[in-house]
Write a protein that binds this DNA or RNA. Sequence first.
RNA 1: GGGCCCGUAGCUCAGCGGUAGAGCACCUCCUUUGCAAGGAGGACGCCCUGGGUUCAAAUCCCAGCGGGUCCA
Length: 799
Amino acid sequence: MSELEAEYRLEYFEEEGFHRKQCPVTDVYFWTRDPDRETCGEPPADDYSFIDNPGFDEEYTLEEMREEFLSFFEEHGHERIEPYPVAANRWRDDVLLTQASVYDFQPLVTSGQTPPPANPLCISQPCIRMQDIDNVGKTGRHTMAFEMMAHHAFNAREEAGDQYAYSGEVYWKDETVELCDQFFEHMGADLEEITYIEDPWVGGGNAGPAFEVLYRGAELATLVFMSMEQDDEGEYEMKDGNRYSPMDTYIVDTGYGLERWTWVSQGTPTVYEAVYPDMIEFLKENAGISLSEEEEELVHRAAKLSGYLDIDEIDDLTAARAEVASELDVDSDELTELLHPLETIYAIADHCRTLAYMFGDEIVPSNVGTGYLARMVLRRTKRLVDDVGVDAPLDELVDMQAKRLGYENRDTIRDIVRTEERKYRETLERGRRKVEALAAEYAEKEEAIPVEELIELYDSHGIQPEMVEEIAADAGADVDVPDNFYSLVAERHGGGDASTASTAREERLADLPETEKLYYDDQERTEFEAVVLDVIEREEGYDVVLDQTMFYPEGGGQPADHGTLSTDDTTVQVTDVQIRDGVVLHRTDGNPGKGEFVRGQLDVERRRRLMRHHTATHIIGYAARQVLGEHVRQAGAQKGTERSRLDVRHYSRITREEVKQIELVANDLVMQNRAVKQNWPDRHEAEAEHGFDLYQAGSRRDRTSGRSPSTTTCRPAAGRTSAGPATSARSRSSRPSRSKTALSGSSSPPATPPSRRPSAPRTRSTTPRTCSTSRPRTSRRPPSGSSPSGRSAARRSTG
RNA sequence: GGGCCCGUAGCUCAGCGGUAGAGCACCUCCUUUGCAAGGAGGACGCCCUGGGUUCAAAUCCCAGCGGGUCCA
């Protein structure tokens, strides 16, 4: 880490007369203007000194603080960017939720493959961090939902030329720290009190020097200078034990916690009171919590002390509570009794905001992915609400937050919450009946309910062992819950060890170059010529690898093309096509011969049918969105030549009437006979125009080319535009999603099968792409060509 | 994305190779002035769908659809 020391010696620090010191409490190195300062400013070295002593000139609400930050940076040369959804898995597949503003620009912008929407830019990005869920409400400062205000600058080294989507330096460390200082000054902070702690940052394969910016005991900003990538030969060893070397791109990644800044401006005992004053008030009243002046005072003092409980020592929370109690000279249990309802209320407010973000950004509760997380948060919230005796309906509470956050799909949000609440209630009832039956059975046998049953109840039916104990007690049955219950459950899941032993066939594939995919270039072509690079014998038939192919492999629920490969001597049937790491495998009934020159011929009729079904599924998806709401997304699809199926995510069962309505809208669209176009815009342009629906369909972009495996899209531009704002990124301003498409008076259109849709001329606005048969897999370079601005990054996932 | 559980009468569920059962609800009658009343009788099932195994499938196997749940 000390290797980075030079990285922190900024000219700006020099000019401003900063001193570098080491904290005697935490051992970290930090920079300060105050020559007499000894400690770094971070708890436990320093206390929260802003409580009852606000750190800025004025008090700010959440909304005011956000605006203050954004307009300040706008005035200092940054372009304001609309926030991205909290569901980060809508544009990247390595994470579920947005946890930082930089998530918006990973991995394509940070790697230089595609340009940022603006440079430099500022943003206030809603984020959700589930990892602190147990701390929420208790520590006075943890929230699950928060906004990360940030300014970012994307730089590329001059030597790198123009091989990245941006070039040159916008600004780097000195300017970043200066901007940070200026913003503090603008807010009326005392610059003497600010400390910049050296804290190298590592994450997601990247690293760089970073500062934590402390003011009055609160960490108010983190300034990260992302400039290195993991490299075993690298010259820097970072705290994760890996080695890193400098990258060609280097990025200013800052984070200013909106809630913390608001809190410090108000100096309230907890962050929640500063951020959700109205809701806290409402909840207190509703739950009938009213404190005497004396109690109020006590709570106030206790909150100040619990403000710096160590976040990492959750186990010690009760011990810490006891310590606080003794410091206040009150009974520990009494204090807990007093604080517990308040903590619950804080958590409810925070969780409701989390839910508002999730449902507002069109996450639909389910058993997978972000939907599962949303479900867990909702159930937890429901338990808290019942626990503390708030009798307002949950959908109303979530709506309070949704309203404040400015979402316009609030009716849908409420509908989702009510539906989920009902399902949860049903699950609990079902569980109760099941446990009662089981308890009666074992009570009769005079045996304890075995652990196996408990695991089954929890794993398959969601019934906590505590609940089993409770119900069983009433039925007179015994239960023994082992201490390691949850690890027993985990064990049950852990069984499958994926065989990592790569087969000889896979090794052979690894040596082959990626197949050039001609099907992206011209969908009308049905014949091509290629060289047989390898032929791998299978149990039945062969896998033929070519240098290039028109054969479209199975993927995204679409079956593979069929056809033939012919040499002068022989013709083999292609009956299946698969893709492995960019290598296309043609399953054939015969061996065309390695090194042979072959002509490929597609089964044209089959291809046409598949294309029509492909387009048709998009039409259905669009229609479903019109009828059911903007939150509707494709969950999966199975296309065929005779029939196709589209699965969509929705929060309740689709009724017969809704299906009918979807058919009407879809058929109407078909009858309009629109053109299907294909183009390859820059990523942010595509997002701006179409929103994050771009990435739905669950189809992964082709890993190596960065392009989508599909080539058509049936999002008729006019249809989208007329349907209101298209971008989900702006769903905060989108219309209520329940509206149905009004069909003009025409009597129900004839049920034209989508496959009869006349094949519209397909145009491409992109310039021809130069081909290279062996594009290096790890290259960050965009493919060379006349459109170097990251065309490859435009991931038009429509499969 | 993976694991597991479940689709049987209107509802809740049992049955788990040999022609479909219980409780509640429903209908009829009797009894009874009650808090989920008591008695007698009765009606109600493509046992989710499609394949397979079998002399025989609600039951076993495979696939699909639907619902639930846990985990990442």
